[in-house]
Design a protein around this nucleic acid. Structure first.
Length: 796
DNA sequence: CCCAGCCTGGTTTTT
DNA sequence: CCAGGCTGGG
C-alpha cells in the first residue's frame, strides 16, 4: 500500500476562512485535480480515474469532506460494486471521520444497500419483509424444475442459458410482458430454437414471488419498481439521501443507472467515478454507454480526469497502455507516471500447467529473498477460479503461505447450504428451494417421487410448496409419507416459535440439533466429514460473532433516539445472504501470497504480480468470440497488469490439458500482440526466459507418463481408449505428417492438417470434433511433447 | 418407492 | 473435481 504520494504541490492549499487551519488538513494530501474533485461536493460530478490514480482516496476524502462540511453521514449514499471494495472504503473512511460517523454512512454494494431498503419497503410491492435472496444455484434449480414441469427438453432449454437470458432482460428492466412484446428478443429466441424463454421468464418470476424470494437481479428490478410505483417511497429516499456517490461506474448496468439517477433526481448531487478502460462486467449487463448517458442526462456535469498513476513503475504503465491501445472502443486518455522505470516485465514460458505453477512458486521464493519482499507482497492472478489448485500445490511444496480468494465460497459448500436452508426455511416457509433442499436431509423417507408429486400439486393450485406440505393430510399420499412430511412441518413450526424469543445463535444451534443435521455430519468420520464438521462449526462461530456484536451495538436512529440492534435469525440471514467470500478473517491473510481471479483483483494493488495462464482460449477465454468480447478480455488484461506496483511477470504454458485436449500454444494472442514492446523489454530476444526452477527437464512429467500422459484424468482416459480404438488415420494424412521435419505421428492416430513453421510456432489448422492425435515432436533438441487433440484449433 | 454407489459431463468472470 | 443422473438392490 502507498504511504505517501510524492506529488508536486503546485498550489498552496487554500485554507477555509471559517475553519481552523488543520480542520481540512487531509486536503493537503491530494494533488490539484484530486482536490478539485473532492471539494466539488454539489452538483453532478464525473471523475474519470485511471488505475492507480488515487481514485479510492478521492472517494473517501470526498465523503469525509461532505461530513466535515456539516452534513450528517446518513445523508450520504455510497455505492460500490464488490463487497471487498465496500469494505475497504468503510475502513478508510472510518480512519478519517471516526467509527461513529462511519457507521451511519449508507455505504455498500448496490445489492446490499437495495436489499436493506427493500426489507423495509417490500410489503409495498407485494413481497414479505422476510423475503429470501436466491443465489445463482437456487435460481437455476428453480428454473430446472420449471423446465421439467413444462415438459421442455432440458438439453435445449439449458437452465444456464435460460437464466442468462432472463438475467439479461432484468438488467435492462425488461419485464416478461415487455419481453413477449419485444419483436427482436422473440425473434432471437426463435432463431436460437428456444422460443419459450419469455414464457419461462414469466413463470420464473411468479414462482419467485410465490416463494417470497428475490434473485440477485430482482434486488435491482424491484428497487426500481419500488421507486417508480410508490411515490411516497421515492419521496422518502430522495429526501433522505442528499449526496450520492458511485464507484466503478463503468460496471453499472441499465437498471443500476436508472435507480441512481432516480434517487439523485431531486438534488442532483451525484458523483460517479469510473474508468472505461476497466470495464470488465459487460457479460452481466454493464455498459459503458452509461457514461455517455450521464453526460447527456447531466449537461452541467463537472468532469475531472485523474491520469497520473502513482502505483506502478514506468515499465508497467507502458505495458498497460500498449495493451489497451489495441482497443478501438475507448475514451482517449493518457495514463502516465513519474515513478521509476522499474524492472523489466518478465515472461515465464512453461511446458505445461503444473510446470508453470512450479516455476511461479520458485520465482516467488527467489524474488522474496532477493528483494526482501514479504509473502503478502505477491499476487497470482488468473482468469478462472479452477486454475488456483496447481498453484496452491506448488506453493505448499515450497512452504510459502498463501490464501485463495473467491472460488467455492464458504456459503456455497454443501453442508453450509444445507444448514442455511434450514435457517431460511424457518424465517420464510415459502422458500421453495430451501424446502426442497432439506425436506429429506437428513433422510426422512421423503424421496424425489414424493417431492415431485407435491410440487405438481403446488403448481396446479398456484400455491407455495410449503402449503402442500403443511396440509399434506388433504392430499393423496401414503400414510408413511404423510407422517414423514407432517413431522418435518411440525419441526419447522417449532423452530418458528422461537424466532422472536431466541437470538440467531441460540436458534441456529437448536435447529442444528433438532433437525438431526449436526448429528448426521458428525457421524461421518472420513477426512471430508471432518472438514465438513469444521465448516459447520465455523458457521456457528460466525453466527455467534454476529449476535454478540449486535448485542453490544445500539443503533442510533436518525431522530437521535437509540434502539437495540436486531440479533434475530432473520437479521442474520439478511446480512449474510449477499456475502460471497468470507473475507472476515483479516488475520487469515496476514503475510500470505494472494491468489485470485483478475475480476476479484480489481481495485487492489500488489508490489509483485504474476498473471498466469495467458493462453489462447483460457485468457483470452474461448467464449470470447466477437470483437467486443475480445476488447473486454483486453481490458481485463489491462486491469491485471495495472495491479502491479513494482514487478510484473506474465506466464503461460506451452501446452495445457483442457477438457481432454492438450493444446500447444507457443504464443498466446496477448503475448504476440504486445510482443514488439515485450521484446524491447526483455532485451530483444525471446530466448531471455526466466530460468527454470526445480526439474532440469520441464518435460519430465511427460517422459514418465504412460502412452496417453499421466495428467489425463481417469474418465477421459477411459473415453480416449474407446475412441482411439475407433479412429484410424488416412494414409495421406500420415504421409503429410511424416513429411514434417520435426513432427512424428504415432500409429493409430489421425491428423487433419499440420503445418510447422515461423520459428517456434506450431500451427495447426482444420477442425475435428474427435480426439485424433498423439504426437511426439522435438523441441530444442531432445524434448518431447505428447499432444492429443480433442478439437483442432489454430494456435500460434 | 427409497437409497447408495457408480458414471458422466461440464467449468469465465460476480452480486 | 464435483454435482447430478442413472441403475440396481432393498
Amino acid at each position: 500500500m502507498k504511504t505517501l504520494f510524492d506529488i508536486e504541490q503546485t498550489d498552496e492549499p487554500k485554507g477555509n476562512d471559517n475553519q481552523p487551519e488543520n480542520e481540512f488538513a487531509y486536503l493537503d494530501e491530494l494533488n490539484p485535480v484530486q482536490r478539485q474533485a473532492v471539494e466539488q461536493i454539489t452538483g453532478p460530478v464525473m471523475v474519470i480515474a485511471g488505475p492507480g490514480s488515487g481514485k479510492t482516496r478521492v472517494l473517501t476524502y470526498r465523503i469525509a469532506h461532505i461530513i466535515k462540511k456539516g452534513n450528517a453521514p446518513y445523508r450520504i449514499l455510497s455505492l460500490t460494486f464488490t463487497n471487498k471494495a465496500a469494505k475497504e472504503m468503510k475502513e478508510r473512511i472510518e480512519k478519517i471521520v471516526g467509527e461513529q460517523a462511519a457507521r451511519q454512512l449508507w455505504s455498500g454494494t448496490f445489492h446490499a444497500i437495495f436489499a436493506r431498503i427493500l426489507r423495509v419497503e417490500a410489503e409495498k410491492i407485494g413481497y414479505p419483509s422476510n423475503f429470501t435472496i436466491y443465489d445463482t444455484q437456487d435460481s437455476k434449480n428453480l428454473l430446472k424444475n420449471i423446465i421439467k414441469e413444462q415438459n421442455l427438453n432440458p438439453d435445449i432449454y439449458k437452465p444456464n442459458v435460460v437464466y442468462n437470458r432472463i438475467s439479461n432482460a432484468k438488467n435492462n428492466l425488461i419485464s416478461p410482458q415487455a419481453y413477449k412484446a419485444h419483436a427482436g428478443l422473440m425473434e432471437n429466441d426463435k432463431h436460437a430454437n428456444v422460443p419459450k424463454i419469455a414464457d419461462l421468464y414469466g413463470r420464473y418470476m411468479r414462482r419467485c414471488r410465490q416463494a417470497g424470494a428475490m434473485d440477485f437481479d430482482d434486488l435491482l428490478v424491484n428497487m426500481y419498481g419500488l421507486l417508480k410505483k410508490v411515490p411516497e417511497v421515492l419521496e422518502k429516499y430522495q429526501n433522505k439521501f442528499h449526496f450520492l456517490m458511485v464507484d466503478e461506474f463503468q460496471d453499472t448496468n441499465l437498471a443500476q443507472y436508472l435507480i441512481i439517477r432516480t434517487l439523485a433526481d431531486k438534488r442532483k448531487n451525484i458523483c460517479i467515478v469510473g474508468d472505461d478502460a476497466q470495464s470488465i462486467y459487460a457479460f452481466r449487463g454493464a455498459t459503458i454507454e452509461n457514461i455517455l448517458s450521464f453526460e447527456k442526462d447531466y449537461p452541467n456535469v463537472k468532469t475531472f480526469r485523474l491520469e497520473q498513476n502513482y502505483r506502478s513503475t514506468k515499465a508497467i504503465v507502458r505495458t498497460a497502455n500498449e495493451v489497451i491501445n489495441y482497443n478501438k472502443k475507448q475514451i482517449a486518455k493518457k495514463i502516465w507516471t513519474s515513478n521509476d522505470d522499474g524492472d523489466k516485465i518478465k515472461l515465464i514460458e512453461a511446458a505445461n500447467d503444473s510446470d508453470e505453477a512450479k516455476i511461479v512458486a520458485g520465482s516467488i521464493f527467489e524474488t522474496r529473498l532477493r528483494n526482501h519482499f514479504k509473502n503478502e507482497d505477491f499476487a497470482i492472478l488468473y482468469r478462472t477460479n479452477a486454475q488456483s489448485r496447481l498453484f496452491e500445490e506448488a506453493l505448499r511444496k515450497r512452504n510459502i503461505p498463501y490464501r485463495v480468494f473467491g472460488g467455492l465460497s464458504f456459503f456455497q459448500r454443501k453442508e453450509i447450504k444445507d444448514m442455511m436452508a434450514y435457517l431460511r426455511l424457518t424465517v420464510n416457509n415459502n422458500d421453495e428451494e430451501a424446502l426442497r433442499r432439506v425436506i429429506n436431509y437428513p433422510k426422512r423417507g421423503i424421496g424425489k417421487t414424493t417431492t415431485d408429486k407435491m410440487a405438481a400439486f403446488a403448481v396446479a393450485e398456484q400455491k407455495p410448496l410449503w402449503e402442500i406440505a403443511a396440509n399434506i393430510q388433504l392430499y393423496q399420499f401414503s400414510q408413511r409419507v404423510k407422517t414423514g412430511v407432517g413431522g418435518f412441518v411440525n419441526m419447522i413450526r417449532l423452530f418458528m416459535k422461537h424466532l422472536q424469543k431466541e437470538d440467531a445463535f441460540e436458534l441456529a444451534q437448536r435447529i442444528g440439533r433438532m433437525s438431526g443435521l449436526t448429528k448426521a455430519i458428525h457421524s461421518d468420520r472420513s477426512v471430508e466429514g471432518i472438514s465438513r464438521q469444521e465448516n459447520i462449526q465455523e458457521l456457528f462461530n460466525s453466527i455467534k460473532e454476529f449476535t454478540d456484536s449486535k448485542k453490544e451495538e445500539a443503533v442510533e436512529l436518525e431522530d437521535g433516539s437509540f434502539a437495540a440492534a436486531d440479533s434475530s435469525l432473520g437479521a442474520y440471514l439478511q446480512e449474510v445472504s449477499l456475502l460471497t467470500d468470507m473475507d472476515q478473517g483479516e488475520e487469515d491473510s496476514n503475510d500470505k501470497v494472494k491468489l485470485m481471479t483478475v475480476h476479484s483483483a480489481k481495485g487492489l494493488e500488489f508490489p509483485a504480480v504474476y498473471i498466469v495462464g495467458l493462453e489462447e482460449e483460457l485468457f483470452p477465454s474461448k467464449r470470447s468470440k466477437t470483437q467486443s468480447d475480445i476488447e473486454e478480455e483486453r481490458r481485463l488484461f489491462y486491469v491485471a497488469i495495472t495491479r502491479a506496483e513494482k514487478q510484473l511477470t506474465l506466464s503461460y504454458a506451452n501446452c495445457r490439458y483442457k477438457f481432454g485436449s492438450l493444446v500447444y500454444s507457443e504464443k498466446s494472442r496477448f503475448v504476440e500482440e504486445i510482443s514488439p514492446l515485450y521484446l524491447d523489454m526483455i532485451g530483444g530476444k525471446p530466448a531471455a526466459r526466466e530460468r527454470r526452477f526445480g526439474s532440469s527437464s520441464s518435460y519430465e512429467s511427460f517422459k514418465e507418463s504412460d502412452s496417453i500422459g499421466n495428467n489425463v484424468r481417469s474418465a477421459q482416459k477411459r473415453n480416449l481408449q474407446k475412441k482411439r480404438a475407433a479412429v484410424q488415420p488416412s494414409a495421406e494424412l500420415v504421409k503429410n505428417f511424416k513429411a514434417s521435419p520435426v513432427l512424428q505421428i504415432k500409429p493409430g492416430c489421425q491428423v487433419l492438417h499440420l503445418r510447422f513453421g515461423m520459428g517456434e510456432i506450431l500451427r495447426i489448422e482444420g477442425a475435428a470434433d474427435k480426439p485424433i492425435a498423439v504426437i511426439d515432436f522435438e523441441h530444442h533438441g531432445e524434448k518431447k511433447i505428447m499432444l492429443k487433440f480433442a478439437k483442432l484449433m489454430v494456435v500460434g
